[in-house]
Design a protein around this nucleic acid. Structure first.
Lengths: 347, 347
DNA sequence: CTGAAAGCGCTTACAG
DNA sequence: CTGAAAGCGCTTACAG
């Protein structure tokens, strides 16, 4: 498992230090059973011979692993990269080694990745499931006693634990805010109905409309890819409408950026001619002109909580934990037009 | 290493199929030595009992590993995420499992990550070294016969192989382009002198100036963080100058976005009042208004080439390969002002 | 506190 | 083509 040539093993250390294998093993594990002088002797042999601990051999013997699998649907999306970084940070300080893999949102690639992780003998799996993941995709791990946490994206019907943002809540807060600004025709742009997150956000959107007595109009829910381009195209679908909306909640910030771009190309501006609200609050959101009003999701925080939940399960030997939801918060900036409205009412 | 409870092993399969361990092992490895009917029998036992191959045990016995370490300085930067994705893709199809780790550009964290990877017994390491990495940081792997590839960022003085973009070439092409548009005072914005990539790009910048007979003015090389904020601050440092520049080559696109933002806040625009060129060509570059002129670097391509170089070394048992450089290309859009100039000369 | 012995799940010559 | 045996580098009771 380690270097191919002339590996220094625990036996070499034992010989050099004049003790038995067991003693070296105990020193390696920081056991209090070994006399300090003996431990020092062993430590200096380790340094002298340049010994490297073979984690794989240890894992094999102990029948447990210090590897955890982290399966991310799109690592090139900074939002999910933040999630991965949060997860990684917690595991590394806890002495676990995270295996990060990217599925490109393909259920097939995810299948391959999960197989590799099973063979590698991971102690647990944290995944943001790819689009189209089957409900039972992770059952193999659970059956084998390996805990699974779904982070950021849930998997309805799955027996695994989930740590996800309050999507419904965030969407309804955003829509309520738009209604408060006087909007009645509000679109929901981006995503597809087979995405859990879209279902949740659309549900929050509908709730807020209902509470305000505004009838739900399904033609205002526009499907589109989760990209700038998707945002542009979704916005274009709004133009020929008989009664076009005056505002939109977008699936996420990237889609919102696309909508703002499309507006700009028409010589119009978000917040003045059309209200735009995003979801996620990526780093760019506050830097755009106009600055994007959006629902803040703490991706790193969700990653950290998912990892902590996993650690707890590994240590207690359970495969189920409590589902958690991460708080979200509406961040009002300029693209929703709230500031313009404030100016107007003052003057 | 695998699940804690009642693992199905190769012995169970052998018993169920009525053959010996060796035969099962050969079937698992797809050997042609086993009779097809025997292999089928074994395969159906594998399915029946839900056997999962224990890669760790195999690695231990074979004294080699199917794990490769991928050490990235900043996974939340989409540019480096693309690099990681390119690397991952090549390894996965070749049957290797990439361990992706994020160092947050800290040499200390990188040290920890590398130690963990050594203990895990990786077959190779691909790294974009963290800022401040010592020349000998990877020597332990090389000494142990484990190949190391530096991807995207070189490590001068290191004995490892590198796959990096043509930074000098890209920078000099960009500056030559600006000179061709009539600029004489051209700044270089972002990065720090202890960054190899900054040294290379500044060197290309100087070369182009020299070739045009423009004296190098060190006060026009402004240090700044590689962020939007860094770009904003670098641009602000230009304002109080007695003879401010009329153009800038930025360390990368993110810095260039910051510069464009700072311009906008002053009511000025890139390409009209000040020429801006970036480096990298991230996805957003073409979508900005004005669209960013930049030097395109194929991050995924560099990742793929780095991974291929690594695979070759692993398979041939060598620890050194040829250094490679990835082609770069100036993509002229709007922020450099070339289009405005063209319009003017036409009218 | 320390040593001898067995075994984790696999692969690899070596016979047959 | 298939089986018996040894061993990869470690940990874990079990004696002492």
């Amino acid at each position: 498992m380690p270097a191919q040539r002339s590996t220094v093993t625990l036996i070499d250390i034992a010989r050099d230090a004049g003790v038995s294998k067991s003693t070296v093993s105990l020193v390696l594990q920081g056991s209090a059973l070994v006399r300090p002088e003996t431990a020092d002797k062993v430590q200096s042999s380790i340094r002298k011979l340049g010994y490297v601990y073979n984690r794989g051999a240890a894992n094999l013997r102990r029948a447990r692993s210090n590897i955890v699998g982290v399966v991310i649907n799109d690592l090139t999306n900074p939002f999910f990269a933040e999630l991965a970084v949060g997860i990684e940070r917690v595991f590394r300080v806890a002495g676990y080694v995270p295996f990060i893999a990217n599925t490109e949102d393909s259920a097939l690639r995810q299948e391959e990745v999960l197989q590799a992780m099973r063979e590698q003998g991971v102690a647990g799996i944290i995944a943001s499931p790819a689009r189209g993941t089957r409900t039972d995709a992770f059952d193999g791990f659970l059956k084998a006693g390996v805990p699974v946490v779904h982070a950021m994206r849930g998997l309805p019907g799955s027996r695994a634990t989930s740590v996800t943002p309050q999507n419904e809540r965030g969407a309804s807060d955003a829509v309520r805010h738009l209604i408060g600004l006087g909007h009645r025709r509000i679109a929901f742009l981006g995503g597809y109905p087979d995405m859990v997150v879209q279902q949740q956000r659309v549900s929050g959107y509908r709730t807020a409309l209902q509470q305000a007595g505004i009838p739900f109009d399904p033609t205002l829910v526009i499907e589109a890819d989760l990209s700038r381009d998707g945002g542009i195209r979704a916005f274009e679908r709004l133009q020929p409408m008989a009664a076009p909306p005056s505002a939109a909640l977008c699936f996420n910030d990237i889609v919102a950026f696309g909508v703002m771009l499309a507006l700009k190309r028409l010589g119009r501006e978000a917040g003045t001619d059309f209200a735009v609200v995003g979801f996620d609050d990526v780093a760019e959101a506050g830097l755009y002109t106009p600055a994007l009003t959006t629902v803040k999701v703490d991706a790193q925080g969700i990653g950290e909580r998912a990892a902590q939940a996993m650690l707890k399960m590994i240590e207690t030997g359970r495969i189920h934990g409590e589902d958690q939801s991460g708080a979200v918060q509406l961040v009002v900036r300029e693209s929703c037009g709230a500031s313009k409205l404030a100016e107007r009412s003052v003057s």
